[in-house]
Design a protein around this nucleic acid. Structure first.
Length: 260
DNA sequence: ATGTCGACGAATCGTCGA
């Protein structure tokens, strides 16, 4: 069972790359971020043609998320955090897996712009709401995967230049405390369950030849619950799509689980 | 350090967000 997350930075632009990647990589479940599509424009027909069921939740210009499953549609789908009033489309959750035992929570965490900004305050409120909702969700669904673009680099070794980035957005103590708070719910950073190549990033700025210079951040994550940890076989970042022409600025992250 | 994308509204570019 392969589960993946990818911030596609506009599905309108990236659909051909997504379809090619799905064929090449053959994941079972995929969550997408930054589709930037209103729901009427979501390319469900093209995905269905390729064998994918989709659940989606989007808006114009910004944000937008989706949950793709091969063959069987996800059940008990939720859009955004229950009880948290939000105009932005950032979360999609659904139940999937061979026996519907897996709870998949795909999320596009707020960017936060800069510490002290109104957008940063929104990020903090959103993170509070996410944690409290997930606390309850984990009671209901002990086999849970939280994955997406977290917009948080959890530790200095997730940052190409920790001195340059110290205290900057994605790297503040407040954001990192929130990441640890999620781990405190009984979640595990799947990527760090394994030995990994040094300087592994999931995002590289379009500017400054950052990808060529491998100057990036690891801000896209897959967190697995206590109840799933023993099933985690591998976790990796797939840099191949970042080498495409007109790539997304993010690379997919993939986790492999053993059969239930 | 700030050199790039992508969406959008309005024009063949400026603004915003990331």
């Amino acid at each position: 069972m392969k589960i993946a997350t990818w911030n596609v930075n506009s599905l309108a632009i990236r659909l051909p790359q997504l379809l090619a990647w799905l064929t090449a990589e053959q994941p079972d479940l995929v969550v997408l971020q930054e589709t930037k599509l209103t729901d009427d424009k979501f390319p469900h027909a093209e995905l269905a043609e390729a064998g994918w069921q989709a659940q989606w939740f989007g808006q114009r210009t910004y944000n937008g998320v989706a949950l793709l499953s091969r063959g069987v549609a996800a059940g008990a789908v939720l859009r955004n955090i229950p009880g948290f009033d939000d105009e932005q489309a950032r979360v999609i959750a659904g139940s999937a897996g061979t026996a519907g035992e897996l709870r998949i929570v795909g999320a596009y965490f707020p960017n936060g712009q800069a510490p002290g900004s109104e957008k940063f305050a929104y990020k903090m409120r959103w993170l509070d709401a996410l944690r409290e909702w997930l606390r309850a969700e984990l009671q209901q669904h002990p086999q849970l995967v939280l994955l997406g673009d977290f917009n948080i680099a959890p530790e200095d070794h997730d940052v190409h230049d920790p001195v340059l980035w110290a205290g900057q957005i994605h790297c503040t103590d407040d954001e990192r405390a929130h990441f640890k708070g999620l781990l405190g719910l009984g979640l595990h950073d799947a990527f760090r369950l394994f030995e990994q190549p040094p300087k592994s990033w999931s995002w590289w700025d379009y500017r400054n030849l950052a990808f060529r210079r491998n100057q990036g951040l690891r801000i896209d994550h897959i967190l697995v619950s206590d109840g799933l940890k023993a099933r985690v076989k591998a976790c990796r970042i797939d840099k191949a799509p970042r080498r495409n022409e007109r790539p997304s600025d993010h690379a997919p992250v993939i986790v492999e689980l053993t059969a239930a």
